[in-house]
């Protein structure tokens, strides 16, 4: 003890520094190896050609991006993903809010309801996909049985035909996501003091007016958080597509991420996949920034 203190000075400080680095190392190694380096490497690789056999990668500038611009599948995939995001984001948020308002009210079996809505969140996406494969089965699947019973429709190949496949995939995503977002809305709703609603009632505000002028603005920060997450999921959540359709039929359900997977790991054109990834990253960055700028300014934080 005395010797360590006596030596003190620079040796002690060096040791502290060493300890600090050792403590940091596990997390840092993981972060650098699996997040920072791949991200930077992806951008780097997107400016090179794909190495093939004896031919090493060489710098080709923006050629990969030019190839993408000429690729009709890329534009189809981009369009699909846009429809997918535009459909799933507002719908899952809207349904989440409606469900939260519903189970936050005075209804019987509130706890059971909340749990029922949350179940899809707990299930792994692979399990969900298999569940829905059954729902969508032509003729004897749940959906076809219901449409036959209600409207007298014949059998429909929901995920096998180009017109309905993307919609069917969106449906699964919404079903999976709404329950998760509901939990956030429910927590936010319960954080609003009930006395505010009483004050509004005394002041003569109708239920709709109170919702529009009091509840909704106070849910602002939650909505922003959920919206950012929903948009990211709109580009990220494709597990069920891989399981159910593989992007088919004829790329009708192919999204950016499934296309990246195909290009990178089925055609092994890793450079083009890198370029695609950069495009996806750019889109997500732009959307997140736009959301914070547009909504953030009008959001009330407590």
């Amino acid at each position: 003890m005395a010797r360590a203190a006596g030596i003190g000075g620079s040796f002690g400080r060096e040791r502290t520094t060493l300890h600090a680095w050792l403590m940091l190392a596990p997390a840092m190694i993981l972060l650098v190896a699996f997040t920072h380096y791949p991200a930077l490497a992806t951008i780097w690789h997107s400016f090179f050609s794909t190495p093939k056999g004896a031919r090493p990668a060489r710098f080709i500038g923006a050629e990969n991006y030019a190839v993408l611009a000429d690729d009709p599948v890329f534009w189809l995939v981009l369009k699909n993903n846009l429809i997918y995001a535009l459909g799933t984001v507002p719908l899952s948020i809207g349904i989440a809010l409606a469900m939260a308002l519903w189970v936050n009210g005075r209804i019987r079996g509130k706890a059971a309801m909340r749990m029922a809505y949350f179940v899809p969140t707990v299930l792994p996406m692979i399990a969900v996909a298999n569940l829905w494969l059954f729902f969508y089965t032509p003729d004897y699947g749940l959906i076809d049985r219901m449409t036959r019973l209600l409207f007298g429709w014949g059998p429909t190949n929901w995920i096998g035909s180009q017109e309905t496949a993307l919609g069917a995939m969106m449906m699964v995503a919404i079903w999976k996501e709404a329950g998760f977002f509901m939990i956030f809305y429910l927590a936010a709703l319960q954080a609003i003091p009930p006395v505010l609603h009483e004050a509004a009632a005394v002041e003569g505000a109708s239920r709709f007016y109170t919702f529009r002028r009091v509840t909704l603005p106070l849910l602002g920060p939650t909505t922003l958080f959920i919206a950012v997450n929903a948009v990211i999921n709109g580009f990220r959540l494709v597990d069920h597509i891989i399981v159910m359709t593989h992007g088919g039929p004829d790329n009708a359900t192919a999204l950016l991420l499934t296309y990246i997977y195909d290009v990178g790991f089925r055609y092994w054109d890793t450079a083009l996949a890198s370029a695609l990834t950069v495009v996806l990253l750019l889109i997500l960055c732009l959307l997140a920034a736009a959301q914070f700028l547009l909504m953030g300014r009008r959001t009330h934080y407590r």
Partner: peptide, 20 residues
């Protein structure tokens, strides 16, 4: 009658001001 139609105003203990 609901509160709005009773011809009353009210001050709450916690004031119940709308924070936003």
């Amino acid at each position: 009658l609901p509160p709005a139609q009773r011809g009353i105003s009210m001050v709450f203990q916690s004031y119940a001001l709308f924070p936003h």
